[in-house]
Design a binder for these strands. Structure first.
Lengths: 250, 250
DNA sequence: ACAAAAGTGTTATCGCTACACCCATGT
DNA sequence: ACATGGGTGTAGCGATAACACTTTTGT
């Protein structure tokens, strides 16, 4: 090892992690990590966010994202799944990382960097239930968000931006819809996410021509207008198309 | 605060962070964090990655991404900039987070979660110089990567995937090109990044019709063929177009 | 003269937009 | 009968893929 300037961790632990060097590197191991989950659903023509009411300090009583500290012996990704389950009872959701929030003073109890996650779920399929230190769970409309604890508002904003970008290039919308849905419902969803109107005829043609939908040969019932055909997302077809180089567009 | 099950940090610090509670939360503050930078350049028709030769344990002598531990009083984002400068001398690069790598056993010296960053730079504009505990700096072709320390290979792969996605929808390619470039050079770059051939005539028409290029009314010199017109990226025009709802495509 | 890359024009096709129209159901 | 959303057909425009061709330089 040559003579170098800065005393980074790697400089000082050359000789098989001797006790001497352990002391030198200790100062780096002062972080805690947390995960925060942006869980989005779709209901009554609006995008909804899952929030908890905090039953613990700091920010007791305030709305916040479901999130908590990561255990030292726990993967960060698994931690997000565990924390979501602990606080809201929601399980088996595929969550995707957004980014790391690592400002020095973002958390009052010490140096806590948090990793943002997001997932799109079908509101009817999961029944969130307040648990652990969460006093309540609510779905709130993203167009009318309450004040959120910590920097959670930025985490939500970033996740929404990511969503709007990705939803155009990947068939994500289906996660938000019920198993069976009409093309009209699907169009309303995309209009809500992208805040943009589409021509009905053209939207149907585009979507159907992709071949991602399975026609269930079933009709709506009890609607005060002509009942629509019901479709479901065809996961298999999507995989087949992907392999052939297909790419989803708008 | 109600009686709840799990003993998370927020459960136990209600009363103004008393000494008693401090002990209870200490176990969460055992992490170190690091940053790893995927710096990509373009040279001789190939995408190049900046790697250092490690002059410190662990993995002494091995190739690795420029990366190091984050100081406890340092923002994660600033840390990436600082670390890149310390190890390679490269400054003033806008880096973007990719994701967090948070597996329990990913680092031999303890629980270290790392945040991946990436940036696209013009190889001719920056002169990387090994510094601090980096013994050497090299540009290596991404099509022929050496073995990399830790899980750095996955970090690179993820960054490349992100790049290939984003380069289609945002005018990122220009960061990799010199200030003045011909349309042919630009086409070669996109062909290298996307591993796909384009029709010359159509490529030019598409790019020029976007109005993102400033025609410098200048020609190449000393090339063994007809010299091409030189262009530069028109940052101003791009901002104007963005405001009007323009979106870059392929 | 030749190689090599710059640069241009034409055509035929495909996809998409816009718009008009009809259909089935509950009230 | 009417309101409401489901569902379809088409004409015309615009983008673009495919290809052939001309131009300008260095060797």
């Amino acid at each position: 090892m040559k003579g170098k300037k800065t005393d980074t961790i790697e400089d000082v632990i050359g000789h098989q992690f001797s006790a001497y060097y352990k002391i030198a590197i200790e100062k780096f191991f002062q972080f805690a990590m947390s995960v925060d989950c942006v869980i989005l659903g779709y209901h009554e023509n609006g995008i909804k966010l899952l929030v908890i009411e905090r039953g613990a300090e700091p920010h007791l009583g305030k709305m916040a994202l479901p999130g908590d500290l990561v255990y030292p012996n726990e993967d960060v990704n698994s931690s997000a799944v565990r924390v979501l389950k602990d606080l809201t009872g929601i399980r088996n959701v595929d969550m995707i990382q957004t980014k790391c929030y690592g400002k020095v003073d973002r958390h009052p109890i010490g140096r806590v960097a948090t990793i943002g996650f997001y997932a799109l779920i079908n509101v009817d399929k999961y029944r969130p239930l307040a648990n652990s230190w969460a006093d309540n769970v609510y779905w709130v409309d993203v167009k009318d968000l309450p004040e959120l604890a910590f920097d959670h508002r930025s985490i939500v904003d970033d996740a929404l931006e990511t969503l709007r970008e990705r939803v155009r290039h990947q068939p994500l919308g289906f996660h938000l819809l019920p198993m069976k849905f009409t093309l009209g419902e699907m169009q309303a969803l995309y209009e809500a996410v992208l805040d943009e109107k589409f021509d009905k005829a053209n939207f149907r043609k585009r979507i159907l021509s992709m071949g991602l939908l399975k026609d269930l040969n079933e009709l709506q019932s009890d609607v005060p207008h002509r009942p629509g055909r019901l479709f479901s997302f065809d996961e298999e077809a999507y995989k087949r198309l992907l392999a052939k180089g297909f790419s989803f567009g708008l």
